[in-house]
Write a protein that binds this DNA or RNA. Structure first.
Length: 866
RNA sequence: GGGCGGUUAGCUCAGCGGGAGAGCGUCUGCUUUACACGCAGAGGGUCGGGGGUUCGAAUCCCUCACCGCCCACCA
């Protein structure tokens, strides 16, 4: 006999032990030669710098649920794990560490810095992987990848070179968003706009003839780079100014007044200062009018004009100084509060500056088109569906992707410039000489690629591409991608484009977009708000299974999650309940003799198991995790424990009870892997598989026996009505009741009730249950209705309650019955209802009305009899 | 400026065309030897406002209000 179970489940020691057992036994490994159909998920690779947060916890719990379910359903299941090098984020982390040591990055050379990053990565990069294991993630760790490992780097080069050769990657001098802190260009997506209560400054540009033209700006310092003033051609106020020139009060340069329909007459003064090198609109306008585009800001956001008094000033210092200087010149008009959107660096929150520089771009249109088509034609499906629109509208308005970053940490751009002939050599292998003039004097482009460039290849690069690996053949395209909406554009869209381009097939069948986890007040969790809840703490406190179950139950499609610790606690109780059910089986049932025939309870639980199995399958397949969790919770607690196990005290049958419990463990395993595995291993004898996680997921029976369900329902309702009577009249459980079945009851039901009499006695606290034909002398009695069944009970209450209390109870029932009667009468009297409603509803209502009317009569006569 | 989501019991949320549901909280009983992280009951809602479609609307359509999010180059 296996060991006894402890009174309470102890998650901490069980979880560590079980996970190690799985890992040692190789339970997570996938086999590319398996001939079963594949089920593949690639993990959204967390940053190597990362620690597990709520978002990861949710994301990976959902993935693990799907993976475990599919693995048990005999798919060749692969979950590919890994981490992302996270260019800017990681570089920032290491820079900060250096800062603490008083070292500035730029004082080091590139190799020394990179060595530092790699060291740091080796040391703390594994942290999040450990935390994923803590969560129970059943990834195939033998296939763990890192976006900068050898294979993935090879894939990156291959893609870059191919796109370059097809003219889909080009280099251009262009206005891009620039972070003066990170000192790199950013893609449009990495700029986050935030509404800021700022100031708009009005000042005058003199024409030199005594006239002025007034402009408004939120960034006065950019006037140092102004090359024109623009007005709307239709604006009568400025008709005479067009074509004239103003004199720049600080540089004495002459700026032309030009007209362009872009200018909004109703905003500001209707005249706009134009800074082509530092503003997106001005840049476009500058190109249209062939304006000069002087750059006035350097890479750290200082004014760079060697002959100017502003040279070297930080942009915000310059702003203040220029306002002062304009005031001194009498050109300053006013400054007003003004709310406007300001771009911030996603990684360091610094205000970005648009700046012209040489950057590499991906020409995106021809890549986007197939990615749009694949979603439109259903090759890839979003769940929930409404994210399709978000995806499509972004893809349809997509702009070229700036992929170069002026960082050190990342995939170096595989382009070499020849010192002799200027030719660009673009190559998969590091070249030794210029491919044009054979000169050995080559210098590699110093920039690295946007992190998302390598992430975009993740679904196939992790499977061995560009080699034709068995994994690639077996497991691509992947089945489901599970991720948050915040990276649909950054990541999902780009994987779609790259997958279609290089694998000729969309990388996923389904993209499941899950919710954002907020705090219990609906606020986004953030360090600055101090409302971050650490998933690891919750796992410690309530156990991983309870935590996972809670996350699943929170996962309502299309709705954000408000994390409620109270609910996690409730699911901890649920795990304890399950645990104790297991204890009960072992302690109180295992030694009882097994009857030849299954009892009503046994037959019923088997029916219900089959139904629940089927329903669970549907909810999991459609990724309605909350419904799966609710279904299991309800069934396990309120059916298996509350009814079935209670009935086992009357009709024990260890064999069936254990079988049912075993099935429950299987059904629950994808959500709560640890406790189910532990119970399986300790309770189940003659296991077909040593591990629950490798066992077969249950299958529903095709047909159900509705007679069993109906009979059970009768007994259940009967017990409930007695319990209700008892409770309403405050009869102590110790006082046993005497009950007789009324002769008005249907004969069948009378027989059924008597057959299953032991359940009634035990579960409703009844000492005697008499048939209608027995002559029993009972003095003070009441009739109990049983919901939805043709059966009545006569309960004797002499000495238990007083007449008034019973009068009250019956009056209450009578009121309810009258209400029902009235409701149904009104509805059935309506001609339009009789004419148009479906027949079965009319019949149903007629039946119900009949029942209600008899009830009313019965209660009325009972009241009289009291 | 566009687009999306939400508004249902005190709280957190299911339900999305046929007489309002769960969990937690509240209240009333229970030392019923698996479980007080428990058991048995109860109370509690004109389903945000208004209009429409329908025999019938929390559920479909329109409109308004209030929250929240995403996208967008108004100086």
């Amino acid at each position: 006999m296996p060991t006894e179970l402890t009174k309470n489940y102890d998650p901490k020691c069980v979880e560590t032990r079980i996970y190690a057992e799985w890992e040692n036994a190789g339970c997570f490994g996938a086999d590319a030669t398996d001939c079963a159909p594949p089920f593949t998920i690639v993990i959204p690779p967390p940053n190597v710098t990362g620690v597990l947060h709520m978002g990861h916890a949710l994301d990976n719990t959902l993935q693990d649920i799907l993976v475990r379910y599919k693995r048990m359903s005999q798919f060749a299941t692969l979950w590919v794990p890994g981490t992302d090098h996270a260019g800017i984020a990681t570089q920032n982390v290491v820079e900060k560490q250096l800062e603490k040591e008083g070292i500035e990055r730029k004082s080091m050379d590139r190799e020394a810095f990179l060595k530092r990053v790699w060291e740091w990565k080796e040391k703390s990069g594994g942290q999040i992987i450990h935390q994923l294991k803590r969560l129970g993630a059943s990834c195939d760790w033998s296939r763990e990848r890192f976006t900068m490992d050898e294979g993935l780097s090879k894939a990156v080069r291959q893609v870059f070179v191919t796109l370059y050769k097809e003219n889909l990657i080009y280099r251009s001098n262009y206005l891009v968003s620039w972070c003066p802190r990170c000192q790199t260009a950013l893609s449009d997506l990495e700029v986050e706009h935030e509404n800021i209560e700022g100031k708009i400054v009005y000042f005058k540009y003199p024409l030199g003839d005594g006239r002025h033209i007034m402009v408004a700006t939120t960034r006065p310092e950019t006037m140092l780079g102004d090359t024109a003033i623009a007005v709307n051609p239709k604006d009568k106020r400025y008709k005479d100014f067009i074509g004239q020139e103003v004199i720049h009060p600080l540089t004495q340069a002459r700026l032309k007044i030009i007209s362009d329909s872009y200018v909004d007459q109703s905003f500001g003064t209707g005249a706009v200062k134009i800074t082509p090198a530092h503003d997106v609109n001005d840049y476009e306008l500058g190109k249209r009018h062939q304006l000069n585009m002087p750059t006035i800001l350097n890479e750290v956001g200082q004014i760079e004009l060697p002959n100017s008094i502003y040279h070297g000033l930080d942009r915000f210092e310059a702003r203040n100084k220029i306002i002062e200087d304009l005031k001194a010149l009498g050109l300053f008009e006013k400054s007003e509060p003004h709310q406007h959107a300001v771009g911030h660096c996603q990684r360091c929150r610094t205000i970005i500056e648009p700046r012209i520089s040489d950057q590499w771009f991906v020409k995106i249109k021809s890549l986007a088109d197939p990615a749009i088509a694949a979603v439109k034609n259903g090759q890839t499906r979003f769940v929930p569906e409404h994210w399709t629109d978000t995806y499509l509208s972004w893809m349809e308005n997509i702009r070229d992707w700036c992929i170069s970053r002026q960082l050190w940490w990342g995939h170096r751009i595989p382009v070499w410039y020849c010192q002799d002939c200027d030719h660009q050599t673009v190559s998969i292998e590091d070249p030794v000489e210029c491919e044009s003039c054979a000169s050995p004097k080559l210098i590699q482009d110093p920039d690295v690629l946007d992190t998302w460039f390598s992430s975009a290849l993740w679904p196939f690069s992790t499977l061995g591409w560009p080699d034709a690996s068995p994994d690639l053949k077996k497991f691509y395209p992947t089945s489901v991608l599970v991720t948050g909406f915040d990276i649909i554009f950054f990541w999902v869209a780009r994987m779609m484009m790259m997958g279609l381009k290089f694998m000729k097939a969309a990388p996923f069948e389904i993209v499941h977009i899950h919710a954002l986890v907020r705090d219990e007040h609906g606020k986004k969790m953030s360090k600055s708000k101090g409302n971050v809840i650490d998933p690891l703490v919750l796992m410690d406190q309530y156990g991983t299974d309870a935590f996972r179950f809670a996350l699943a139950s929170f996962s309502i499609q299309g709705r954000d999650i408000l994390l409620s610790v109270k609910r996690i606690e409730g699911y901890r109780n649920f795990i304890t309940k399950l645990w104790n059910a297991g204890r009960f089986l072992r302690q109180s049932l295992s030694d009882k003799p097994i009857p030849d025939n299954p009892s009503l309870a046994d037959q019923w639980i088997l029916e219900r198991l089959s139904q629940v199995t089927e329903e669970l399958k549907i909810t999991l397949e459609s990724m309605k995790f909350n419904e799966a969790a609710d279904l299991l919770y309800q069934f396990i607690w309120h059916e298996y424990c509350d009814w079935y196990l209670e009935m086992q005290k009357v009709t024990p049958n260890y064999k069936v009870a254990l079988h049912a419990f075993n099935t429950i463990l299987h059904l629950l395993h994808p959500l709560c892997p640890f406790v189910t595995e532990e119970l399986y291993q300790t309770l189940i004898e003659n296991k077909p598989s040593p591990f629950l996680m490798l066992s077969l997921f249950p299958k529903a029976q095709k047909q159900s026996d509705s007679r069993v369900l109906k009979t059970f329902d009768l007994i259940q309702s009967l017990i409930e009505s007695i319990r209700n009577f008892r409770s309403e009249n405050k009869i102590a459980p110790s006082k046993k009741l005497t009950i007789q079945i009324a002769k008005e009851s249907s004969k069948t039901n009378q027989d059924l009730a008597m057959t299953h009499k032991p359940y009634v006695l035990s579960l409703a606290g009844v000492q005697n249950l008499f048939t209608a034909d027995q002559s029993v002398s009972m003095d003070k009695t009441s009739k109990l209705q049983v919901q939805n069944h043709d059966i009545e009970l006569i309960v004797s209450w002499e000495g238990l309650i007083d007449t008034n209390a019973e009068k009250e109870r019956i009056t209450k029932q009578l009121d309810q019955a009258r209400q029902d009667q009235k409701f149904l009468e009104t509805r059935l009297q309506k001609k339009s209802y009789r004419d148009k409603a479906p027949k079965h509803l009319i019949e149903r209502d007629e039946q119900k009305l009949k029942e209600a009317s008899t009830l009313v009569k019965k209660y009325e006569s009972e009241l009289k009899g009291l």
